[in-house]
C-alpha cells in the first residue's frame, strides 16, 4: 500500500532570534493518512503548523505539497493550493453569521465557489459538523465546541487536500470530547489527509495511523501510536516536563 505523498517536510528549522523552535525536522504525510504530531508544551508543534500553512517561513529546509515547493509561498497561496487549518486558539469571524463564517472557506479557499453554490456547499459542511440548525445565528454566545465546529466546517468548506488541526479537541468537556473524537474519526473514514496536533492521548491512540513526537523542536520518535507512546525517550520527554 504505497500511497502518494501529500506533504513532505525536509530538514526544516525555524529560529526566533536565538531560540530554535523547530530543529531540522523531517516528516511526510501520505494521502488518506492521519498523522499525529505530539510533544510536550513548547516543543514546536504549533510552529510546524505555522510553517506548513505559510504563517511563518522556515529558516532552513524545504516543504513540498505534492510536487510543489511551498516553503517560500505566502499563506494565501498555500491555502489556494489546498491546505486548510484551524487555530489552537479558535478564530471565529465575529461580525459574520455562522453560515457566512463557513462560506468564507468555500468562497476563497481551494474551492472558490460563489453565490448559491457557495451557500449550499457551506450548509453541507455545517450539517456535517452538526451545526446546520444555527446557520443564521450570530456568532456571539456560542459554546466552545460550537466555535470549534464552525472553525472546522470553515476549513472543510475549502475542500482541502491537507487539513491541519491544532489541538482541536483542547478545552472540550468530557461529553463534548466524545462528540469531537467521533467527528474527527468520521473525517478519517472519509479518507481525508490530516495532521493532528493533540495532547489527548486517547484521541491519538484511537485516531492516528502514525505519530511524530517532538521535543525541544526536534523529532524524537516516529511510528505507530502504540510504539511511539511506549518509547522510553518519549516517556522521559513528557515526564521531564511534568517534573521540571
Amino acid at each position: 500500500m504505497r500511497e502518494r505523498t501529500v506533504l513532505d517536510v525536509q530538514g526544516v528549522t525555524k529560529r526566533f532570534g536565538g531560540l530554535v523552535a523547530v530543529d531540522a525536522l523531517s516528516l511526510a504525510v501520505r494521502e488518506n493518512e492521519m498523522l499525529g504530531l505530539i510533544g510536550p508544551n513548547g516543543s514546536g508543534k504549533t510552529t510546524v503548523i505555522n510553517l506548513i500553512s505559510g504563517a511563518l517561513r522556515p529558516s532552513e529546509g524545504e516543504i513540498f505539497l505534492g510536487d510543489e515547493m511551498i516553503s517560500e509561498w505566502p499563506a494565501r497561496a498555500i491555502a489556494r493550493a489546498g491546505v486548510a487549518r484551524t487555530f489552537q486558539l479558535v478564530r471565529i469571524l465575529h461580525s459574520l453569521t455562522v453560515l457566512e463564517n463557513v462560506m468564507a472557506g468555500a468562497v476563497f479557499g481551494h474551492k472558490r465557489l460563489w453565490g448559491a453554490a457557495a451557500r449550499k456547499f457551506a450548509l453541507r459542511q455545517l450539517d456535517r459538523v452538526g451545526m446546520a440548525h444555527a446557520a443564521d445565528a450570530p456568532t456571539a454566545s456560542l459554546t466552545c465546541i460550537d466555535e470549534k465546529r464552525i472553525e472546522l466546517a470553515r476549513a472543510l468548506a475549502s475542500d482541502p487536500d491537507l487539513l491541519l488541526l491544532d489541538e482541536w479537541l483542547a478545552g472540550l468537556n468530557p461529553t463534548e470530547m466524545q462528540i469531537g473524537i467521533a467527528l474527527i474519526r468520521s473525517l478519517r473514514e472519509e479518507g481525508r489527509t490530516i495532521v493532528l496536533v493533540e495532547h489527548v492521548m486517547d484521541a491519538i491512540r484511537s485516531l492516528c495511523d502514525r505519530c511524530v513526537v517532538m521535543n525541544g523542536g526536534a523529532k524524537i520518535a516516529e511510528g505507530t501510536p502504540e510504539a511511539t507512546l511506549a518509547d522510553p525517550e518519549v516517556i522521559r520527554a513528557y515526564l521531564g516536563v511534568g517534573h521540571a
Binding site: 494565501r76 486548510a84 468564507a104 476563497f108
Partner: peptide
C-alpha cells in the same frame, strides 16, 4: 468584511 474581522484568518483562507 473578513479582513476587517481577522487578517490572519483571511490570509489562511486564500485572500
Amino acid at each position: 468584511r473578513i479582513i476587517g474581522n481577522d487578517e490572519t484568518v483571511a490570509a489562511h483562507l486564500g485572500i
